[in-house]
Amino acid sequence: MARLTKLQQLQNSAPASGSTAKTLGMVDDFIGYLRGECHLANNTIIAYRRDLDRFSEWAGTRRMKNLTIRELSNYVSRLHDSGLAPASISRNVVAVRMFFKYLQLEGIVVDNPVELLATQKAWQRMPKVLTHRQVEAFLEAPRKSDSFWQRDRAMLEVLYASGCRASETCSLRLHDLSLEERYLQCEGKGGKQRMVPIGTRAIAAIHQYLEELRPMLADRGPERSNVLFLSRTGRPLERIQLWRLVKQYAKRANIQSGISPHSLRHSFATHLLAGGADLRQVQEMLGHASIQTTQIYTHVDHSRLKKVHQQYHPRS
């Protein structure tokens, strides 16, 4: 009850200095949407309200649909200058981004320029990336002495060849494969489908698995499944099983313990960009809604270049 009272006090508080009634009214509607439609926790709603009150005070008489990326960048700079912690700045940016998504849904704004703002937390979260040599050792880790080595090798090859998420890989179905055309179709977040090219090695590994092992696994299942990767009982392979297999083969290949299925996705993107691939094309293959997320991988590659420079340049 105390939490609800605090929330009501925040919602009914006097407008911040310089804010317009219209902006605060839109914020009130957004908070109502979060509570009524999204069913967020009270503490989360209170945090959003606090951040958006700060944003409304900064915005003053500016119209939301006219805000530019330059002005929004100035807002983030102001947050830095105010001495907020990086995590607090990131939360502020997320709150404003969600607010603008709501304004898009309501038809108040057409574009969401806040999508172009990188949160400090996102840039600091550096993905783990395998070297080319580590990838080779990892993909060769399944041995013929392993019970289901054909499946495991095909699965690892698909993870690296396509950049698919673990959940996307586990949910691949037989009719998602177009091996002659050298691509597969996967379903990403929000049910969005995309076509992803795959290479010769992945195609060969899939063929071998389909011919030598999958029919036997399918016969063990309680019912015929059209999912590509099956467990030893003939049921669809679950994410936790995939995660364990990646850990197992990473250890066998003498790769650091921090490797996960997502590490192959990170490596896929970083290696493509390092080889000269276009950022927009990589964004499409990864299924990222915002190119800002894909840009993290260019940051990873640049950080490696800095390390090389520091190690070998005589005046570094």
Rank of each mutant, 00 (worst) to 15 (best):
D146K: 09
M285R: 01
G18E: 13
S171L: 01
L213F: 03
I296L: 10
S17Y: 09
L10Y: 13
P314H: 15
S316N: 06
Q185W: 08
M26R: 12
V196R: 04
D219L: 06
Q208K: 15
S88R: 11
H266R: 11
R224T: 06
E57Q: 15
R35I: 12
A14T: 13
A137Q: 14
T68M: 01
Q310M: 13
V129I: 13
G258L: 12
L228G: 05
F148Q: 03
L273R: 05
G199A: 06
Q11Y: 06
W243Q: 08
K247R: 15
S13L: 11
C38S: 08
R235F: 04
E37K: 08
F30R: 03
A47C: 05
C38A: 12
E157L: 05
L4T: 15
V109T: 10
S77I: 09
H299A: 13
F268I: 03
P215N: 01
M155P: 04
F100T: 10
L139R: 10
V227T: 15
S290A: 07
L213M: 11
L245Y: 02
A161S: 15
N74P: 00
L79V: 14
M126Y: 04
A16V: 10
L139M: 12
L174A: 06
R265E: 08
T23E: 09
L286G: 11
Q185I: 15
Q134V: 08
N92H: 13
H80S: 11
N254F: 11
V246D: 04
G234R: 04
V129H: 01
L24A: 07
S88H: 10
L105A: 13
Y249C: 03
T270F: 01
Y48L: 10
V76M: 07
A218T: 05
Q281V: 15
W123M: 05
K189C: 11
H313N: 13
I259M: 11
G191N: 06
Q208Y: 10
S171N: 03
I259V: 15
Y33M: 12
A253P: 08
E136C: 02
D176Q: 05
H309K: 09
R224Q: 10
M285G: 04
Y183E: 06
S178K: 12
V110N: 07
L237M: 07
H39K: 07
A161E: 08
D51E: 04
D152C: 09
S147H: 02
C170S: 00
E223G: 08
P15W: 02
S260K: 07
L184C: 03
F55N: 00
W123C: 00
L117E: 03
L156H: 10
L172Q: 10
Y48M: 08
R182L: 00
D152Y: 09
S267H: 04
S82H: 14
S263L: 06
T61I: 07
